[in-house]
């Protein structure tokens, strides 16, 4: 129990993932800056930002449901800590039992931050936040379909393994799922789904700053905003890690950096798509690709 508590709070859970997430966000900003021919911030900038946000004033909109407004950032944070603890533990302690999860559990836990954000934004009573909520939930529906389909590929390939550490073990013996044609296709789809799950350009219609002024985030300020941001940065660690675990035979630092750079590059070379375009993209092309991947997996390719 004490060991689990340590795992959850310090390593590899909250503190570790949060630090890594802040560093990842620095990489994101730095690469973005280089793409745009700027210098970019120093490595400690995200940490300073957190401190700055935490001493700022908090405003709460009138007529909002206050408890919901205050508690939803915490819900999201808690869920992402648990999810990342599960994924990390599967990677670093192969024999771990008792305090782990399987693919389905992690998939559901990783949806929780989005739900929490949506509830928090709905509770503000701000019409722009409502627009953001509407887009966000449609985006969830859009990417969740191909994401679920491609998660079937490793299950089919490993003939019915669900536990994360079993999947890693299977991949160390039989080679990464990614090395098959079906796995590769699935991974490709997964990258796009990840982009949308992180709410980054081109799939950031829900928070579109220039249009609806950060939509779902619009009423959040101070420490509340800091927690929301932190949750997002932690998702930037947890999600690539999840994909690496499931498709790429377990964590190593270079795999993570590769994925992170892909995310940043997609984000910097694309314009924002409209929400209906995003829905069509995921339910059309991506779902078709995902289905092809599943068929190939069934055929044993």
């Amino acid at each position: 129990m004490l060991k689990n508590l340590f795992n959850f709070l310090v390593f590899p859970g909250f503190l570790f993932t949060a630090t890594l997430g802040l560093v990842a966000s620095w990489i994101d900003r730095k690469v973005t800056a280089r793409v745009q021919w700027r210098v970019g911030p120093p490595w400690y900038q995200p940490f300073i930002d957190m401190v700055k946000l935490s001493i700022k004033e908090i405003t709460i909109p009138k007529n909002s449901s206050k408890i919901m407004f205050l508690i939803s950032p915490l819900l999201g944070l808690s869920a992402v800590i648990l999810a990342s603890t599960f994924i990390w533990l599967a990677n670093i302690e192969l024999g771990a039992t008792g305090f782990t999860g399987d693919i389905i559990v992690v998939l559901y836990l990783l949806t929780l931050p989005a739900i929490a954000l949506i509830l928090g934004a709905s509770s503000t009573g701000n019409p722009l936040a409502s627009v953001g909520v509407s887009r966000e939930i449609k985006l969830i529906l859009a990417y969740e379909l191909p994401f679920i389909i491609i998660l079937c590929v490793p299950i089919i390939k490993s003939s019915g393994l669900l536990r994360l550490q079993d999947l890693i073990q299977y991949q160390t013996v039989n080679g990464a799922i990614l090395s098959n044609l079906s796995g590769l296709l699935a991974f490709l789809v997964a990258i796009f789904c990840m982009q949308a799950k992180l709410g980054l350009v081109p799939f950031d219609a829900g928070e579109a700053e220039t249009e609806i002024m950060a939509g779902t985030y619009i009423e959040y300020s101070g420490i509340l905003l800091a927690i929301l941001k932190l949750t997002k940065f932690m998702m930037m660690v947890a999600l690539p890690l999840f994909l690496i675990t499931v498709f790429w035979a377990g964590f190593s630092i270079w795999k993570y950096v590769v994925l992170l750079v892909i995310i940043v590059l997609i984000r910097n070379t694309n314009p924002r798509v409209r929400i209906d375009q995003a829905v069509r993209f995921f339910w059309g092309k991506m779902t078709a690709l995902a289905l092809i991947a599943v068929f190939l997996a069934i055929l044993g390719k």
């Binding site: 689990n4 508590l5 959850f8 709070l9 909250f14 935490s54 001493i55 700022k56 004033e57 908090i58 405003t59 709460i60 909109p61 009138k62 007529n63 909002s64 205050l70 508690i71 950032p73 915490l74 819900l75 944070l77 808690s78 869920a79 800590i81 648990l82 603890t85 503000t124 009573g125 701000n126 019409p127 722009l128 936040a129 002024m213 619009i218 009423e219 101070g222 420490i223 509340l224 800091a226 927690i227």
Partner: peptide, 28 residues
């Protein structure tokens, strides 16, 4: 642990400037 996570978040709230809450009308 989800509840502990909520507790951690609450601690962060308390550490931050939670007392300086002000009510505003929604911003559009």
């Amino acid at each position: 642990f989800l509840i502990i996570g909520l507790g951690v978040g609450l601690l962060i709230y308390v550490a931050g400037n939670i007392r300086g809450i002000r009510e505003t009308s929604p911003y559009i």
